[in-house]
């Protein structure tokens, strides 16, 4: 985007520095947006769409910070050392960094999948003017089941049939053993915390929230009900597309990005 600037930044102090990219718009930013990334392989496949989203928002006058949690991407430490409670703290640190660099302007969060859950939790605690959640995960345990199933599908493609059952893998986790999920060592702590429910919005003030369901068809009624139950005051949209965070190859997310940018624009007025 002409006039915008992208710089590599370090967040925090000491040995556990978080690393990210700060997208600065031309001129004074109108708002600041912190991106919260997905987990596991979802992070890799969604990398490019999130870069494009950041550039689009920077082109529209937003300062945007993308960063990696500890144990992920360019983040310090090893994946198995961390769990959602640590990554929530990372969001706090990144938010603090962004707010200091772009003070006195509205601050918001945009998250995808697990990152959407972190964004929604953080929006209740941080001075957030808005939050955008692309396909949040209404139930962590169901998500883990889906990831275990995905592992089985991949084994089937590689070996002709799946090797371990979900039950056996789940039992390993519940016994306190690490389980390999396509190279990501899932620790019992990570499993326990992921299976914990995302807090809803009850009982506290919350900023405007946009929840976007991304899928090839409208979400099953039960899933939509679960999302609406969790995020009762959010505005809901559907974007008909294959889940790009699970795709091999590039997905054109420009429609989703434009819709999100327009919504943020309205949330600021």
């Amino acid at each position: 985007m002409p006039g915008t600037l992208e710089e590599q930044v370090e967040i925090g102090e000491g040995t556990e520095l978080l690393r990210g990219t700060l997208h600065r718009p031309a001129g004074t930013p109108r708002c600041a947006v912190l991106f919260c990334y997905p987990l596991f392989e979802e992070r890799k496949s969604s990398c490019r769409p999130l870069v494009e989203a950041a550039r689009h928002l920077a082109g529209a006058g937003c300062a945007v910070l993308r960063f990696d949690y500890r144990g992920c991407g360019d983040g310090p430490g090893d994946f198995e050392q961390y769990a959602p409670s640590d990554w929530l703290a990372d969001v706090d640190a990144a938010a603090g960094f962004l707010i200091r660099h772009a003070p006195a302007i509205p601050f918001g969060l945009l998250g995808l999948r697990f990152g959407a859950n972190l964004a929604l939790q953080s929006a209740r605690r941080l001075p957030a003017a808005f939050a955008v959640a692309w396909e949040p995960i209404p139930e962590g345990r169901a998500w883990i089941e889906e990831e275990l199933r995905r592992k089985m599908v991949r084994e089937m493609m590689t070996f002709g049939r799946s090797r371990a059952s979900r039950g056996a893998l789940r039992e390993q986790l519940e016994r306190g053993c690490l389980v390999d999920l396509d190279g990501y060592p899932v620790s019992p702590r990570l499993f326990r915390e992921l299976c914990g429910d995302v807090p809803g919005e009850t009982g506290s003030a919350h900023p405007p929230v946009l929840v976007v369901h991304v899928g090839p068809r409208d979400p099953p009624a039960a899933r939509l009900a679960a999302l609406r139950d969790r995020f009762s005051s959010a505005e809901f949209r559907t974007w008909r597309a294959l889940p790009f965070w699970n795709r091999i190859g590039l997905t054109d997310c420009s429609a989703l990005i434009r819709t999100t940018g327009d919504w943020i624009e309205r949330a600021l007025t």
Partner: peptide
Amino acid sequence: DSVSLLELVVGLEEEFGISIEDDEFRV
């Protein structure tokens, strides 16, 4: 591919009301 195959599995279960068991994941 393996990614769209999981979408297919979910589709089968929703379209036909069946449940695909772990030992039925055979190519």
